[in-house]
């Protein structure tokens, strides 16, 4: 898929608060507004990969899609917006029930 879809306008904070893990250990998060099944504690990158998503950022200069590269927190290619905070490393940040995950465009800040 292309990550250049419009990012979510504002994170829905209520979605996070109401999010809970199910008895089978799974939970729901959203990626670009789409619900995804995830496991609390797995990394955001793992949840996205498991859902078939491999790109969730566009670069500042050329607007090219990026996802995981180093997998261990060194390269910063996997930056993602989680619950409104941009520049989170998807390969490090654990999923919490109800997380609102969004494509990060450029620096992820409005002033870019």
């Amino acid at each position: 898929m292309r990550p250049q879809q419009p990012a979510q306008a504002r994170p829905d904070v209520r979605a996070r608060q109401s999010g809970q893990a199910r008895p089978d250990g799974t939970c729901t998060v959203t990626f670009d507004g789409r619900p995804l099944e995830a496991r609390p504690g797995q990394t955001v990158a793992a949840a996205l990969w498991a859902a078939g998503v491999t790109a969730w950022r566009t670069t500042r200069r050329a607007g090219r899609p990026r996802g995981v590269f180093c997998g261990i927190g060194v390269c910063f290619d996997c930056l993602v917006t989680v619950n409104g905070s941009p520049n989170q490393r998807a390969c490090l940040v654990p999923v919490r029930p109800g997380d609102v995950i969004g494509v990060q465009e450029g620096t992820g800040r409005d002033d870019d």
């Binding site: 990158a45 793992a46 990969w49 995981v68 590269f69 180093c70 997998g71 261990i72 390969c91």
Partner: peptide
């Protein structure tokens, strides 16, 4: 395209 070690880590 990912690093070999990254694939292993994931």
């Amino acid at each position: 395209v990912i690093t070999a070690g990254g694939a292993q880590a994931m």
